[in-house]
Simulated scan of single mutants.
Amino acid sequence: MSVDTRRQVNELIVDIFNKILTLEETYHHMHGIDLSMTEIHTLDAIHKSASKQMSDVAKSLDITQGTLTTSINRLEKQGYVNRVRDQEDRRIYRLVLEDKSFKVLDIHDKFHNEMVEGILRQTEKDEDLVRAIAELNGFFQNMLEENQ
């Protein structure tokens, strides 16, 4: 692989990543969401968590519990999340999304759906795109695992 190809791949990956983040932030702000992407992704991780425990949510986001606590404190102050003591094991707190969180999650899902639909409209062979993205994802997953 030539140096020019390596440079192009690097520039494309960085450019795509930055554009998606910028588009996602802009989309959310246009729809009245005044949360950071970190906070939105935290709500999404809580929503997808089976246990709703801090440790599981932090693990799914690949962050420390301390970092998650900072986000949860802000989200709790703003009325998006509550910490509720588990009825069976009083040592455990569960994260509960408040109603206003679901509006945020609906808009977040809508952005992702529109993005995927737009990408798929640009391609002729969906399975080739899916395979290529899956291979990239696997590559980055391996890098993460090797560096932890």
Rank of each mutant, 00 (worst) to 15 (best):
T5E: 14
T5L: 15
T5Q: 14
R6V: 15
R6C: 10
R7C: 08
R7G: 00
R7H: 10
Q8M: 15
N18D: 13
K19C: 09
L21Q: 11
L21C: 06
L23H: 15
E24C: 02
E24N: 07
E24I: 02
T26N: 05
T26D: 06
T26I: 03
H28L: 15
T38W: 09
E39T: 06
I40F: 03
H41R: 14
T42E: 04
L43V: 09
A45M: 08
I46Y: 04
H47N: 14
H47T: 03
H47G: 07
A50C: 00
S51W: 01
K52N: 04
K52A: 01
L61V: 01
D62H: 10
L68K: 05
S71R: 08
N73G: 01
R74M: 07
R74V: 04
L75M: 02
L75A: 00
E76R: 02
Y80H: 03
V81M: 03
R83N: 00
D86W: 10
D86L: 06
E88L: 12
R90Y: 03
R90V: 14
Y93V: 01
E98I: 09
E98K: 12
D99M: 09
S101F: 04
F102N: 10
K103C: 03
L105I: 12
L105P: 07
L105E: 07
D106G: 11
I107D: 06
I107P: 08
I107S: 07
H108E: 15
H108M: 11
K110V: 07
M115K: 13
E117F: 02
I119M: 06
R121C: 00
Q122G: 10
T123G: 07
D126P: 00
E127S: 14
E127K: 14
